[in-house]
Design a protein around this nucleic acid. Structure first.
Length: 944
DNA sequence: TGCGTCACG
DNA sequence: GACGTACGTGACGCAC
């Protein structure tokens, strides 16, 4: 039906529904996992009542629910302080917002929200259109800001008080008819929304004035006529502020909306979708009521026994709840026929979740072959499905034959596929990225997923590692079977497919069992530790993104590496000969111990210092000092050559040689693995091989980057954040000069030099700038005079003088550092802008460890926030570039590397840059702009 | 296995 | 006054 005369649009103000629901109900949590769910429950009840209500003549023909996209809107550009004094949304409400939107869709009600606009603007625009088309509108809200829309066939409805609000009610409240409400609001201001208005004038006075002068502009124009001196002066003095206030309260009714009125026609909910959602939320009585009203049978909500012990925020939990069954390897089932498999599948479907673990022949996901998989549906209730076990190595005749009594791999995967891909069934893993990749190689994209490793990482970063063994021992009081017991050690290691099935069953099913129990323990603690948002926005969604990147890999030119390797070998041989010549005999140049003895004992160089093993230190800094001292004669020569030799040796062993071995013969590409829960600060780590430390600083090293190439017809594109950590520092420490410099696009190191050393930025001595740059880095690292002195090779007193002057110029930095350490001492953790928590257990230690802990505490929120930002960008990237012939390949802390068809290079840069620059939004609005530099080329050296 | 060294941000 | 220090990683070779 086309919207027009006789149509009646109902618009639900979703945000006010949510707040009502949240505050009206006690803090309910979902029984099975402790997810906060009260606002969702209240919202669903209210929405269902609205749908069921007998509206009589006012029954809707069209319906939509409207939400605020974020707290950032165009009004913040008009007035930065707009709604600035609103208290932050409670964590346990924020995590429910996505669920409320899901609920709206489940009820088959259009869910409308638009970036940069408030829900009220969308409501205003739809209302104007509906009236213009000849229809009527009911706005379900009691928000006074919407009262300006009332009249002309538009009413409001306060659902809580079950009361209609018409023109009379608006006049009663504001003293003026709806069309003049904004004029009154502009004068009266609003402390809740932080709208200034005219000081000293409230609604009463405002209404009086507007009624007398007709409207706001006339009032301001004739303000001089007002008899009361104080009132007159206020209006004249604050005219601009009053006009701004009017702009802020005036709803934008001409928003460019991507929806038409016709699309909002009332629809019946789909019983399957709605009941599925309500069941998952575990709303028993509402599920029953809805099922009854829709005339279908109510699904059974499974009773889940889980009730986690009351956790303390972030602290390690006491092991094993007493009412959990003990670990019993004998209790695990080995699934050998399809009937039993089907029984497990049915159970998983009923339950809606499963812990899963895959067993393979290798830790390298690109090469690993699936050997079997284990499933778990309750503590102690787990099974193992062997798929391709082979006979042990003793019997040479049958060694490669599959062992009897195993189901066919592909048959099992096809049977499990609907479960693994069902978005109503949660798949729980420990380091689930590994299993995700194994299954992806069989064409299965597992979703949705939860990961106990990442749950632990979000809650316990800095306290301990997040591997299964650590977590099991710490939180379940149970030491898992060691993989070494199955596979052996040394040169007699076997692959998992050679492990006897009975042993494999005990091991594999136990892993799934442990994963289940950890999940049951961790999941409810997440919101208590106030890291649900961290987990949901920066950990869990990263899993498939990284998995795809890793599987894509990057093309590496093996021949180029091989040529480099030979070249390095020759140069090293020549250097080695010279080194032996100077030393007066052959020795192992690669041995720091032998080198130290030659330099400091045989050649008599003074000032050698021994480390804890008794060997002389021969690090690059030591050798550089010797090489730069011509008085030492041959020793200086020797040190210089060893430095060159070392550089080549490093490049050859770690890069040109090792990297070739990492090229996958199937893809011709190198596939790294990212460790999500490796670095305490939120950074990723890259292993096997590490592609985050490919050389770039030296000329020789950059040759290695040239071997990272784009495929035929493709280009590599690199985008990196410029100075992201200093920008984060400028924001969190709130340093006016730094923020202004970034806004003005000034060279930040030159600016620092200018402030600290009092020299003009124009024509600055590069050495001065270099010193300032070192200070800037030092600040991020938790500066010390000793460290700065060593870095700059200057006396410690001089370094101390630099630092003193720096803090004099930027007192906010010192304050930030002190506050951060103080916070860590008090709470035992520090926090990033995005809520990531990093624990600092050593912060109250005595001795040198305290210094370490303090510097780490100062650094963590800065490094961590930068890590959060790029994580957010990465998670949004796949969707943002989905229509481009481009793929994201690598992340190097502040850089993303893409491979893209030549014709789409510019489009990709534009798209990816936007995602990266806006990555903090809507959670955080930085006071400084983020700048992303881009480059492109046939290889990584050119692109960078 | 621990240490020293050095590649990266 | 002495302690010792820049932050975060991973991989390699040597020496035990």
């Amino acid at each position: 039906m086309t919207f027009g005369k006789g149509s009646h649009l109902h618009l639900i103000d979703g945000s006010s529904y949510i707040f009502r629901a949240y505050h009206a109900l006690p803090p309910l949590t979902r029984k099975s996992d402790g997810l906060p769910i009260g606002a969702v429950a209240g919202f669903c009840n209210m929405l269902w009542s609205e749908l069921q209500a007998d509206h009589g003549d006012d029954a809707p023909t069209h319906l939509a629910c409207v939400f605020d996209f974020s707290s950032q809107t165009f009004r913040n550009d008009l007035y930065a302080e707009y709604k600035a004094n609103r208290p932050e949304m409670p964590e346990d409400l924020r995590v429910q917002l996505p669920l409320v939107r899901e609920a709206t869709r489940a009820f088959n009600v259009p869910s409308l929200e638009l970036e940069n606009y408030e829900a009220d603007d969308i409501i205003a625009t739809l209302t104007r259109r509906a009236v213009k088309a000849g229809g009527r509108v009911t706005i379900i809200s009691s928000d006074k800001d919407l009262m300006q829309l009332v009249g002309n066939g538009v009413e409001m409805f306060d659902a809580m008080k079950n009361r209609r609000i018409g023109v009379e009610d608006v006049i009663k409240k504001f003293g003026v008819p709806p069309e003049k409400v904004v004029d009154v609001q502009a004068l009266a201001g609003d402390s809740v929304d932080n709208i200034p208005g005219a000081p000293g004038i409230g609604i009463k006075t405002a209404a009086l004035l507007i009624n007398e002068f007709g409207d706001l502009e006339s009032l301001l124009a004739r303000a001089a006529e007002i008899p009361q001196p104080k009132r007159r002066q206020t209006l004249i003095e604050h005219a601009d502020q009053i006009r701004l206030s009017r702009q802020l309260v005036l709803l934008d009714d001409s928003v460019d909306l991507p929806w038409t009125l016709d699309e909002l026609e009332l629809r019946r909910p789909d019983p399957d979708v709605l009941l599925d959602f309500l069941t998952r939320m575990e709303f028993r009585s509402l599920t029953r009521r809805v099922a009854q009203a829709l005339g279908v049978e109510a699904p059974v909500t499974p009773e889940t026994p889980s009730k986690a012990a009351p956790p303390e925020s972030g602290a390690p939990q006491p092991p094993a709840e007493p009412d959990q069954p003990k670990f019993d390897p004998g209790s695990y089932e080995c699934v050998r026929d399809m009937e039993r498999l089907q029984a497990w599948i049915d159970e998983i479907r009923d339950l809606g979740r499963v812990a899963i673990d895959t067993e393979t022949t290798s830790l390298d996901e690109m090469r690993a072959e699936l050997v079997g998989l284990s499933l778990c549906t309750a503590p102690g209730r787990a099974c193992y499905v062997p798929l391709s076990h082979r006979a042990g190595g003793d019997d040479l005749f049958s060694a490669d034959e599959p062992v009897a009594g195993q189901l066919d791999r592909d048959t099992v995967l096809q049977a499990l596929r609907p479960v693994l891909e069902d978005d109503a069934i949660l798949k729980i893993g420990q380091n689930v990225k590994y299993d995700w990749k194994i299954l992806a190689r069989h064409g299965i994209r597992m979703a949705p997923i939860d990961d106990t490793m990442l749950l632990s990482y979000a809650m316990h970063s800095g306290l301990h590692g997040h591997g299964m063994d650590t977590l099991s021992e710490r939180y379940l009081g149970h030491a898992p079977i060691k993989i070494k017991e199955l596979l052996g050690g040394g040169k007699s290691v076997i692959t998992f497919d050679r492990v006897p099935i009975d042993k494999a069953t005990r091991y594999a099913a136990e892993d799934a069992d442990i994963t289940w129990r950890l999940w049951q323990l961790f999941k409810p603690q997440l919101h208590v530790a106030r890291v649900t948002t961290v987990y949901e926005t920066m950990e869990r969604p990263l899993v498939p993104v990284l998995a795809e990147m890793e599987m894509t890999g990057i093309r590496v030119d093996a021949n180029a590496l091989s040529r480099l390797s030979n070249m390095f070998s020759q140069k090293m041989a020549a250097l080695e000969a010279e080194i032996h010549e100077i030393a007066g005999g052959p020795f192992n140049v690669g041995s720091p111990k032998q080198l130290g003895e030659i330099l400091f004992d045989r050649m008599g160089v003074e000032g050698g210092t021994r480390g804890k093993t008794g060997a002389y230190g021969t690090g690059a800094d030591v050798l550089e000092d010797i090489a730069a001292n011509p008085e030492l004669g041959p020793a200086a020569e020797l040190a210089a050559r060893v430095l060159d030799w070392r550089q080549l040796s490093k490049l050859k062993s770690t890069y040109t040689d090792a990297l070739q071995a990492h090229i996958d013969p199937d893809t011709g590409r190198v596939h790294t693995s990212y460790v999500i829960a490796g670095a305490n600060t939120g950074r990723l780590a890259s292993t096997d091989p590490n592609l985050q430390n490919i050389p770039v600083r030296s000329e020789e090293g950059r040759r290695i980057r040239e071997a990272f190439v784009a495929g035929p017809g493709m280009r590599l594109v690199s985008l990196d954040y410029s100075q992201i950590e200093l920008r984060v520092l400028a924001h969190v420490a709130d340093i006016p000069q730094l923020k202004q410099a970034f806004r003005d696009g000034i060279d930040i190191h030159a600016m620092t030099a200018s402030e600290v050393f009092g020299v003009p930025i124009e024509g600055m001595d590069p050495m001065i700038r270099r010193q300032a740059k070192a200070i800037n880095f030092g600040v991020i690292y938790g500066i010390s005079a000793f460290g700065l002195a060593r870095n700059l090779r200057i006396p410690r007193a001089e370094a101390q003088a630099f630092i003193d002057r720096y803090f004099e110029r930027f007192p906010g930095i010192r304050a930030y550092m002190d506050q951060t350490v103080e916070f860590a001492r008090k709470h035992g953790y520090v926090q990033t802008l995005f809520g990531r928590k990093i624990h600092t257990p050593e912060i109250n230690a005595k001795g040198p460890r305290a210094g370490f802990a303090q510097r780490a505490a100062i650094n963590a929120p800065i490094q961590g926030a930068a890590a959060d930002i790029i994580r957010r960008a990465m998670i949004r990237m796949p969707e943002a570039i989905a229509d481009l012939p481009a793929r994201m390949l690598l992340q190097v802390h502040d850089e993303l590397l893409f491979e893209v068809e030549e014709r789409a290079v510019d489009a990709l840069i534009e798209r990816a840059r936007k995602v990266m620059e806006n990555a903090p939004l809507p959670a955080v609005k930085l006071d400084v702009p983020l700048v992303v530099d881009a480059g492109q080329g046939a290889n990584w050296a050119e692109a960078h």
